[in-house]
Design a protein around this nucleic acid. Structure first.
Lengths: 159, 159
DNA sequence: AATTATTAATTAGATATGCTAATTATATTT
DNA sequence: AAATATAATTAGCATATCTAATTAATAATT
């Protein structure tokens, strides 16, 4: 088989694998994958407005609103109207939400990290370099397909 | 940053990237991502029963049924009751469905393949080896989390 | 200053996903 | 023949996601 074909098959396998992990976490925590992704984004950014969240996750504001509604009902996130600019709504994890994020999600990552660290140093570097290559190619691909769109996106991924 | 952290970030980036590509294809073809995935699976396997499809995609039969309903209404797939065993329903792409699969989806892959083939041979091998490593680690991870489950799954990915 | 335009978020309404449980039809077993 | 198993569908529910319309607040313009 061609190397490129192998790469594609492996990529699909990897994506499938993480997808199933997500579902597993989801079942374990009682939080759906999209909800979990919102929470992960919040964990990394402390405070975001609905709009920023939507942009970051490439979803409509309306979609984010409905996901937040459900997360708020479970008391995993809190909304607070902006004091400076009252149109804005700042979203953040509650204590309960932070607590939940300390559980299952990291466990999975820990396993990955443990396995990863079992590799020789040269192999680790090789893997990282390869992933960088792939990420770059996929990005180029995306740019090919949508030439003018979202410069912001490009900036962000290159930081 | 740790190598393992870098790897995680890159993986997330890659998944995000392919995710957005899927959405793009979806917009271009008027077929939703899950529907597209069903069609891809069918393209690779010519003929499958609903049940086999469900197993392959790790979804419930009920879910597959509803996706097939919509694909059938668009005349992209056809259902045929099994003659030998009348409980089974064989699903396949229609001409129209096959035609559609020749368009956008492959275009995206083509870009990837072209980029990939621009790499030196040693680099191609490196990337494939790395992806294999990752795929294996993610699989191990999955097994750690769900020890006894789905031997069939394991068989399939190791073929 | 008053009007107009823009921005931020929500609501309303539609379609699609995905689940579990129940149902229908056919095959297999005892 | 009766009981059990299998394949697919249906029904009913919660969620996700979109577009279009609405509400509220801020910014810009005349």
């Amino acid at each position: 088989m061609e190397n490129s074909q192998k790469a594609l098959v492996l990529l699909r396998q990897i994506i499938r694998s993480t997808d199933m992990q997500d579902k597993e976490i989801s079942r374990g925590t009682g939080v759906t994958p999209p909800q979990l992704m919102v929470m992960q984004t919040l964990r990394e950014n402390t405070q975001l407005t609905s709009g920023e969240l939507a942009k970051e996750m490439v979803l409509t504001q309306a979609t984010i609103t409905s996901i937040l509604d459900r997360l708020e009902k479970k008391e995993l996130v809190a909304r607070e109207r902006g004091k400076d600019d009252k149109r804005k709504v700042w979203v953040s994890l509650t204590d309960k939400g932070t607590e939940l994020m300390k559980g299952a999600p990291t466990t999975q990552q820990d396993i990955f990290v443990r396995n990863f660290e079992d590799m020789q140093n040269w192999e680790q570097s090789m893997v990282v370099a390869s992933l960088e290559r792939i990420a770059f190619m996929l990005n180029a691909q995306h740019l090919d397909a949508a030439p003018l769109l979202d410069i912001g996106e490009l900036d962000r991924t290159q930081q």
